[in-house]
Lab assay of single mutants.
Amino acid sequence: DVEPGKFYKGVVTRIEKYGASINLNEQVRGLLRPRDMISLRLENLNVGDEIIVQAIDVRPEKREIDFKYIP
């Protein structure tokens, strides 16, 4: 289970102007929005990149997770 405040290694699977889709595994994925990137710009991400993200909002009833990137 993903817990708010914990850090996870994820893989960038899609990049859109509203954010990047991050997969932690086949069943768990979430969104990294541009506003939640401290020192990383969306255009510097590539599909397949592995990054460390922090879960900031977990809504299991909607199967949604928001991530934050902290270098």
Rank of each mutant, 00 (worst) to 15 (best):
residue 1 D to M: 14
residue 4 P to T: 12
residue 4 P to H: 07
residue 5 G to I: 02
residue 6 K to A: 07
residue 6 K to P: 02
residue 8 Y to M: 02
residue 10 G to R: 00
residue 10 G to V: 08
residue 13 T to V: 11
residue 13 T to A: 08
residue 15 I to T: 03
residue 15 I to V: 10
residue 16 E to R: 11
residue 18 Y to W: 15
residue 18 Y to P: 02
residue 18 Y to Q: 11
residue 18 Y to H: 15
residue 19 G to E: 04
residue 19 G to S: 05
residue 20 A to Q: 01
residue 21 S to C: 15
residue 21 S to K: 10
residue 21 S to N: 09
residue 22 I to F: 03
residue 22 I to V: 09
residue 22 I to N: 01
residue 23 N to F: 13
residue 23 N to R: 15
residue 24 L to N: 01
residue 24 L to A: 01
residue 25 N to D: 09
residue 25 N to G: 11
residue 26 E to D: 14
residue 27 Q to C: 12
residue 27 Q to R: 13
residue 28 V to P: 01
residue 28 V to C: 09
residue 28 V to M: 08
residue 29 R to I: 13
residue 29 R to M: 14
residue 29 R to L: 10
residue 31 L to V: 10
residue 31 L to A: 03
residue 32 L to R: 01
residue 32 L to A: 01
residue 34 P to N: 06
residue 34 P to K: 08
residue 34 P to W: 11
residue 34 P to E: 12
residue 34 P to D: 07
residue 35 R to M: 09
residue 36 D to Q: 04
residue 38 I to F: 08
residue 39 S to V: 08
residue 40 L to G: 08
residue 40 L to A: 09
residue 40 L to S: 09
residue 41 R to K: 14
residue 41 R to W: 11
residue 41 R to T: 15
residue 42 L to E: 03
residue 42 L to P: 05
residue 43 E to K: 09
residue 43 E to T: 08
residue 44 N to Q: 15
residue 45 L to M: 06
residue 46 N to S: 14
residue 46 N to W: 09
residue 47 V to L: 09
residue 47 V to Q: 02
residue 48 G to C: 04
residue 49 D to Q: 11
residue 50 E to C: 15
residue 50 E to W: 15
residue 51 I to P: 00
residue 51 I to G: 01
residue 52 I to S: 03
residue 52 I to H: 05
residue 52 I to F: 09
residue 52 I to M: 10
residue 53 V to D: 00
residue 54 Q to S: 05
residue 58 V to Y: 10
residue 58 V to D: 03
residue 59 R to T: 06
residue 60 P to H: 10
residue 61 E to A: 11
residue 62 K to A: 12
residue 65 I to D: 02
residue 65 I to N: 02
residue 66 D to C: 08
residue 67 F to Y: 02
residue 67 F to W: 07
residue 68 K to W: 05
residue 68 K to V: 08
residue 68 K to Y: 07
residue 69 Y to R: 03
residue 69 Y to N: 04
residue 69 Y to Q: 07
residue 70 I to H: 08
residue 70 I to N: 09
residue 70 I to L: 11
residue 70 I to D: 13
